[in-house]
Simulated assay, not measured.
Amino acid sequence: MTELHTDRLILRDWRPEDRAPFAALNDDPAVMEHFPNHLSPDQSDAMVERIATFLDEHGWGLWAVEVAQTGEFIGFTGLSVPRFEEHFTPCVEVGWRLARSSWGHGYATEAARASVAHGFGPLGLDEIVAMVVPDNTRSQGVMRKLGMTRDEDADFDHPLIADGSPVRRHRLYRLGRDDWAVSQKAS
């Protein structure tokens, strides 16, 4: 499995000791504000199993994120393939979910940049997308820092979220390989 390193973070395979802090962040009301519900410890463990299986099969995916200096597990960041059909699928999505204690340090952007670089570099992707609830301004800020732009004609009702849910409507952000390459030359 590929492991990614940034100045401050390690994006790595999941370990058994990641499960308890991951379950805690999946039950944190602030972390889960823009999701349909909190996850029970069993649901959180099942999610880790799905993520770890994908990583084992593909060598990339949603990596566990560790602060290099302390070894602290803070959540996940990486690339995934949505498990639903929509007008923009099949696709590869960049995503993240970090513990509230790690917010405000730029970790989501730093880890997502490494994930996007891996997607456009070794994986040879042509496009990476991101999906977000309109009220989730923090994640939209990360998307813009990555160079992603909102595809205003592509907003959609998430098919895995129940009708009537306040978090069913999603915005779609896109980043193409050429735009990413230009942004890399400018930085």
Rank of each mutant, 00 (worst) to 15 (best):
T6M: 14
T6C: 13
L11M: 03
R15I: 02
P16N: 09
P16W: 07
P16S: 08
E17I: 01
R19C: 06
A24S: 09
A24P: 10
P29R: 09
M32S: 11
F35S: 09
F35Q: 11
L39T: 10
D42N: 14
Q43V: 12
Q43Y: 10
Q43L: 15
S44V: 06
A46D: 15
M47T: 08
V48H: 01
V48N: 03
E49S: 07
E49W: 04
I51E: 00
A52V: 03
T53N: 05
F54T: 12
L55G: 08
E57T: 12
G59R: 12
G59T: 15
W60E: 13
W63I: 00
E66Y: 01
Q69S: 15
Q69V: 09
F73Q: 04
I74D: 07
F76C: 08
T77E: 08
G78P: 10
V81S: 10
V81C: 11
P82M: 06
P82H: 03
R83Q: 11
F84Q: 07
F84H: 11
V92M: 06
G95K: 00
G95D: 01
L98D: 01
R100Q: 14
W103M: 08
W103Y: 11
G104C: 11
H105A: 11
E110C: 10
A112Q: 04
G119C: 01
G121L: 13
P122K: 06
P122A: 15
L123D: 07
G124P: 02
L125G: 00
D126S: 08
E127T: 06
I128W: 03
I128F: 00
V129M: 14
T137Q: 14
R138K: 12
V142T: 09
R144V: 10
K145F: 07
G147I: 02
M148E: 03
R150A: 15
E152R: 15
D153C: 10
A154V: 14
A154K: 14
F156Y: 15
H158Y: 13
L160I: 06
A162V: 11
A162C: 09
D163W: 00
D163G: 03
S165L: 02
P166N: 05
V167S: 08
R168Q: 14
R169N: 04
G176M: 03
R177D: 09
W180F: 13
W180M: 02
Q184M: 13
A186C: 10
A186D: 15
